[in-house]
């Protein structure tokens, strides 16, 4: 469950090639991070997987099924949270079950489960504007999970948080992910984050974006951010990424 395959995927926007001939496979239950210079098509890639956008060429499969139209099997977590401001914490988390026409009792059970899972008990009736950034993203994660997705897509979910909250949220995310084990595709700018979270790290090339290099990350969890192995991996990724960033800037 949650096996994602991308075959020769390209996406052009008015002649600009954002993604070119990209091949990638995400194993079932794998946590994969995407790194790459700005504008290399990371977000475009996530939107293609979510079915919010269609590839110009190539095909995408989730569990062998071709992705066409909005992909309702994945949960999307956005950088700026993108919560429904008129809904409470509970209302946001219930959104998925609600549009899927689950019964009221069923909805509330699901919502309560995920509220508890992300640690928001007691905040059920708060509106998003009453929450801190970290709490908002807990809602974002819970909302994505509440839909029982096969795949979690995260677009720099912690990019807007301060460093301390960010570290805390990474740990929390791993805790949640380990409880409800599904595949995750995680876009980030932070090599630290990638090393701390992922099973594999994909470095994408400067535009037109494609897979440049894939790093395995078998470090045992819970990981120590400053261990020697982590540092070595970080160095390797940084070198690979640094070359692409230079390429992107020289264009």
């Amino acid at each position: 469950m949650g096996r994602l395959v991308l075959k020769n995927v390209s996406r052009r926007f008015n002649g600009v090639i954002a993604i070119s001939d990209l091949n990638l496979e995400l194993k079932d239950g794998e946590f994969m991070c995407l790194l790459g210079p700005s504008g290399c098509g990371k977000t475009t890639l996530l939107r293609l997987v979510a079915g919010l956008d269609a590839p110009t060429e190539g095909e995408l499969f989730l569990d062998g099924k071709k992705i066409e139209g909005v992909n309702k099997e994945c949960g999307f977590v956005f950088q700026e949270y993108v919560l429904f401001p008129w809904r409470t914490v509970k209302g946001n988390i219930e959104f998925g079950p609600e549009v899927r026409m689950d019964g009221k009792e069923e909805r509330e059970k699901i919502a309560q489960h995920y509220i508890d899972l992300v640690g928001l008990r007691g905040f059920e009736d708060h509106y998003p504007h009453e929450l801190s950034g970290g709490m908002k993203q807990r809602v974002g994660i819970a909302r994505a999970y509440a839909n029982d997705p096969k795949l979690l897509l995260m677009d720099e979910p912690f990019g807007a948080l301060d460093a301390q909250t960010r570290n805390l949220m990474q740990t929390e995310l791993l805790r949640i992910w380990e409880t409800e084990h599904i595949s995750a595709l995680f876009v980030t700018h932070s090599v630290d984050e990638a090393v701390y979270l992922s099973d594999r790290v994909v470095v994408m090339s400067a535009r037109p974006g494609t897979v440049k290099e894939i790093f395995r990350n078998d470090l045992p969890r819970p990981r120590v951010r400053t261990s020697q192995e982590a540092n070595a991996l970080r160095d390797a990724i940084l070198r690979s990424l640094g070359a692409e960033i230079k390429r992107a800037q020289s264009k």
Partner: peptide
């Protein structure tokens, strides 16, 4: 982005309008 979020959560076109 709110419309995208709703769509990925399974909302139909009509639900996007009403919700």
């Amino acid at each position: 982005r709110l419309i995208d979020a709703a769509k990925t959560l399974g909302a139909s076109e009509a639900q996007v309008v009403t919700k």
